[in-house]
Design a binder for these strands. Structure first.
Lengths: 237, 237
DNA sequence: CCAAAAGTGTTTACCCTACACCCATGT
DNA sequence: ACATGGGTGTAGGGTAAACACTTTTGG
């Protein structure tokens, strides 16, 4: 009920942070934003970007601010949504920290501008971050795993895949997103039909491009739909 | 990165709570657990059950504890999963409170035993709690809405519907769950085929029951599957 | 026997996959 | 001309909605 009397001095302080799983596709690989820690604990280790929520700040605003500070990316460029909250009592050895994790999906943007923070954020392939030799700080490996899993699942029934593409993109570029995130091959011709027929998913711009060679492809914009009906189902082994 | 130096005295205290959207089906209606607030703010208003997370307590454990305290229900009887976190700076007028909301699904159990807390929890139809004359405390109307939406969505692709049923149940009882949560009619014969054919969803006990009249129905237990493949799709208008 | 609910069979329409095929460009 | 990728047509298998029909109980 969150309504009992509460004496702040009766409990040790709790800190609330946001942590960000920001995904993009670079060089045909799924990558996540990572920062190298400059302080203890976990000094020198890779970690997810994030930071403290300010006293009068919305959680969503804190996530957007941290993203902008460390990368220069704005909410207009990146789809951001709340992922899950992690609050195990010993996840941070210094004190009780409850972290609200966010998932962000970004198009392949120029290498993030080092923000106002000291450590610059870098894109790292998810496969490397999940490997045994990179041991992410805190419980960030778990957060990353959950974020990637959410992204994989949401591609099926939402229009989120387009968040990985620039403002104007071709059907083939969108298909590459699905193939890379799911790690599967997709029939280009059937995908084309499904993607263009799903109401509200893609809006033709009328322009064409030949950047991939071959016959010019129509360019599309993200449409207004958030849910795909019917979903784009992932091939089951 | 949740790794900058932090001085607890530099910020006003933040409280972390859990709030619970516990759903069940009673008298053919979707109901949620609600408590009447005995203190300010929002004294006398309906609210979701919940309370403060203790200093060394897991968030999940806090949710389970609050559920047990207010209703006597144990995690073995109720499916509980994290829903979303609500942390708007002014959602509680007294201080900054970040609340991690949980979703619980329970079978139609005897009226919850008043727990150790003063206010007893009661099952209230969701339609009433969502009505204009019940104004839930804090942002609990939003939390309830999100919980119900999550439950509706998860019935499609997960085996969660069985969490609304007792340990042994018939296919018809399971179908009633879908009909009530979705507010739709479902063809009993096609549903029977789909539900019993989906691998891992239902395990026959071998027993039968005639509690609904007519030909005796086979009784089933929850199977091991968590995801339904293929999903049980909701009829689209 | 009849009502009621459980469960099976069958038809038909639709959708999805696989793949043949044509189109429009660059070299 | 030919390679490359874009885009359309279509046959065949599978699935799902609709509903006729059989089964098994209680009254």
């Amino acid at each position: 009920m969150s309504g009992m009397a509460y004496d702040p001095t009766a409990y040790p302080a709790v800190a609330v942070t946001v942590d960000l799983v920001v995904l993009t596709i670079r060089d045909d690989r799924l990558c996540a934003l990572a920062v190298r820690r400059g302080e203890r604990p976990f000094r020198g280790r890779w970690a997810l970007p994030g930071g403290f929520v300010r006293p009068t700040e919305e959680l969503d605003a804190a996530a957007a601010r941290e993203l902008a500070e460390e990368t220069g990316l704005t909410p207009a460029q990146v789809h951001v949504e709340q992922l899950r909250t992690y609050g195990s009592p010993r996840r941070d050895p210094r004190m009780r920290v409850v972290s609200v994790a966010y998932l962000g999906l970004a198009p392949d943007l120029p290498v993030p501008l080092p923000g106002t923070d000291a450590e610059a954020a870098t894109w790292m392939p998810v496969s490397e971050l999940e490997g045994a030799d990179v041991r992410l700080a805190f419980d960030h490996a778990e957060i990353l795993r959950d974020g990637v899993e959410r992204a994989r699942a949401k591609l099926e029934y939402s229009s989120l895949a387009a968040a990985f593409c620039p403002a104007e993109f071709t059907v083939a570029e969108l298909r590459r997103v699905y193939e890379i995130v799911w790690g599967t091959e997709i029939d280009a011709r059937n995908f084309h039909r499904k993607a263009t027929k799903t109401a509200g998913f893609l809006e033709p711009t009328g322009e064409t491009t030949t950047r991939d060679g071959g016959r010019p492809a129509l360019l599309y914009r993200r449409g207004p739909a958030e849910q795909l009906q019917p979903p784009l189902t992932q091939p089951r082994r």
